[in-house]
Each structure stands twice: as structure tokens, then as C-alpha cells.
Design a binder for these strands. Sequence first.
DNA 1: CCACTGACGAGTG
DNA 2: GCACTCGCCAGTG
Length: 109
Amino acid sequence: MTPKGTYARIYAVVRRIPRGRVATYGGVARLAGLAGHARQVGYALSNLPTGSTVPWHRVINAQGRLSLERVASSSGTTQRIRLVAEGVTVDAGGRVSLTRFGWPAARKR
DNA sequence: CCACTGACGAGTG
DNA sequence: GCACTCGCCAGTG
């Protein structure tokens, strides 16, 4: 696989996400020094090895929605459950208030 | 090298 | 808030 560089940075940032908070793909990419590579973040997580301790469930898209719900994956439910268990309010439509749980602190553009 | 794909983002109506 | 379009780039065949 190509040099771990890209994935390693992404995983490192995801591990830094505080419990009870959620980060966006774009935010993670930016913190990892991969601004604009939001897609790669998702790609990296899809390649996430089994048994990894990376809290991938804390990573959602900029629209405040659970990504896996978009692809109708069985794991989508898991993500939602884990977030709620950490104290994150998840809407019935799988939406989260980035204004309150976003990390880093969400701000106006 | 070329074409297609994808856990995305931002803008527009 | 939702649907559509365009742009971004790495990975894979």
C-alpha cells in the first residue's frame, strides 16, 4: 500500500477526537495536513483494518450527518448507537448538531 | 497513461 | 432542509 503516510496521519487525528464530540471529514483532513482531501479521509476509514482502536464513529460529514447512513450500511446503526452512548445527540434522520458537538469548535465561515 | 470509483465539500435553486 | 452540479484527489484495474 502505498506509503502509510496518508492513512497514518488521518488515523492519528481521528484518535485525537475527544469523547462526546464529532469531527467532519474536511476538518480531519485539514488537521492532518491534507486540506481538500476530505474524500481520502473517508477512503482511509473504509480501509480501516479490523481491530483498530480508531473511533471512526466520531467522524461525520460537514452536513452533520452519519456518512454510513448515506450508503445504507449496517455499520451505520453501530455508529449512531456509539455516538449516543457517548452523549452525542443524534437526530432520527441521523443528523448531529455540529454547532454543539462539532470538533474543533464549529464557527461561522 | 487512461478511466472509473468514492465513509466528501461547497455553491445554487 | 433537499436535490443537483462541479471540484478535489488517492486508489484500483
